[in-house]
């Protein structure tokens, strides 16, 4: 699953858990799944932020070179 799919899944889980007929054990299962997804999303986003910083620096260096 890519980042967008994970974000969509997380959104879906947040909606599912709000349904009234859902059991506590099922809710906890969803919560567990959400935490795992959130961790993965945050990891990906932090990677993106890092790559963005590196690229910005690299392009700035190229622009200043010539």
């Amino acid at each position: 699953m890519n980042l967008e799919q994970k974000l969509a899944k997380l959104d879906e889980l947040a909606q599912t858990i709000e349904q009234e007929n859902i059991s506590l054990s099922k809710s906890l299962e969803i919560f567990e799944q959400s935490v795992t997804l959130a961790k993965e999303c945050m990891q990906t986003l932090n990677d993106c932020k890092g790559r963005l910083t590196v690229l910005t620096e690299e392009v700035r260096r190229i622009v200043d070179e010539k």
Binding site: L7, L10, A14, I17, E18, F31, A38, M42, L45, L52
Partner: peptide, 20 residues
């Protein structure tokens, strides 16, 4: 975009946590 995605993750997670 990164900040918005992070916010979305935090918002959903908080929602789920609150529901639980």
């Amino acid at each position: 975009k990164i900040i918005s995605c992070k916010d979305s993750v935090a918002y959903n997670l908080k929602g789920i946590q609150s529901t639980i």
